[in-house]
């Protein structure tokens, strides 16, 4: 939803920028409607940050697609702890890892986490992991159960992958909400994940949402990245450089 002031934005300016420019009167304060609309945008972002995973909805979608799932929670027990302590959101307690017992080994682990927008995970998450699982199976790669991870940071995927004996992990989770979009899903793919994997060893797709990148395109791109990293044995900056050097298509 856009602030009402943008309705009055001349067309050519709207095409140049989404900045909250002032048109017309330049008063001391934003006018009432613009001020309240700003607050509403912030409220939506806050709601997304504090949202929990809708387990019933996600599990329902996965079952419909014929996908099994397991659920884990990071060492951050609450939303509040998750936000203040990113280290806990990256940690998989031993008891949680045991929930994954017997599910591996697999080629590619798929993790769907809340991240900083549970709403993004709830909305685009099931469709993305379904699209990805379909492509993995078609390529003859095993993926095992989808791991639904609560209070999850990106790096939680590393111990999950280790528990599943996977050499590649795909973590889809909610991105930090902006004022204009609170429902963007991000996807991080890592080859040879281990504890302490640096972010520079991951490849990322972002802005997956209605109005952004659609889930089918995202799944295609994720598959292309997985294929390349399985071939060259590495991911992240090294993979990007490999693609740039070899002139390989990224999608």
């Amino acid at each position: 939803m856009k602030p009402p002031s943008r309705n009055a934005v001349p067309g050519d300016i709207a095409a140049i920028t989404e900045a909250r420019l002032t048109f017309g009167q330049r008063g001391r304060a934003l006018d009432t409607r613009a001020a309240l609309r700003f607050s509403l945008d912030h409220a939506r972002a806050r709601e997304a940050v504090m949202a929990e995973l809708d387990m019933a909805r996600i599990a329902g979608h996965l079952a419909e697609a014929g996908l099994e799932h397991r659920s884990v929670t990071s060492a951050a027990a609450t939303r509040d702890a998750y936000i203040r302590r990113p280290d806990l959101g990256r940690t998989l307690p031993g008891a949680e890892a045991e929930r994954l017992a017997g599910a591996g080994p697999v080629d590619v682990a798929i993790v769907l986490g809340d991240g900083l927008s549970g709403i993004a995970a709830n909305l685009a998450g099931p469709a993305f992991v379904t699209a990805l699982a379909t492509r993995l199976s078609a390529a003859g790669l095993s993926h095992g159960p989808v791991v639904i991870a609560a209070q999850a940071r990106v790096a939680l995927g590393d111990p999950v992958a280790m528990a599943l004996g996977a050499q590649t992990v795909v973590v889809a989770l909610g991105e930090r909400p902006g004022l204009s979009a609170a429902d963007s899903l991000g996807v991080y793919i890592t080859r040879a994940p281990r504890i302490g994997t640096p972010d520079s060893a991951r490849n990322c797709l972002s802005n997956i949402r209605e109005g952004g990148m659609d889930v089918e395109t995202a799944a295609d791109r994720a598959m292309a990245l997985i294929r390349t990293m399985r071939r060259i044995g590495t991911s992240g900056v090294a993979l990007s450089q490999h693609i740039a050097g070899a002139g390989l298509p990224e999608r």
Partner: peptide, 22 residues
């Protein structure tokens, strides 16, 4: 200060030009 307190590149909220007027 940024337009409408919304930095559309860095995705955070700072002050608006109006806040400086205030």
């Amino acid at each position: 200060t940024v337009p409408g307190a919304d930095d559309i590149m860095l995705n955070y909220q700072s002050l608006s030009f109006h806040d400086a007027q205030f």
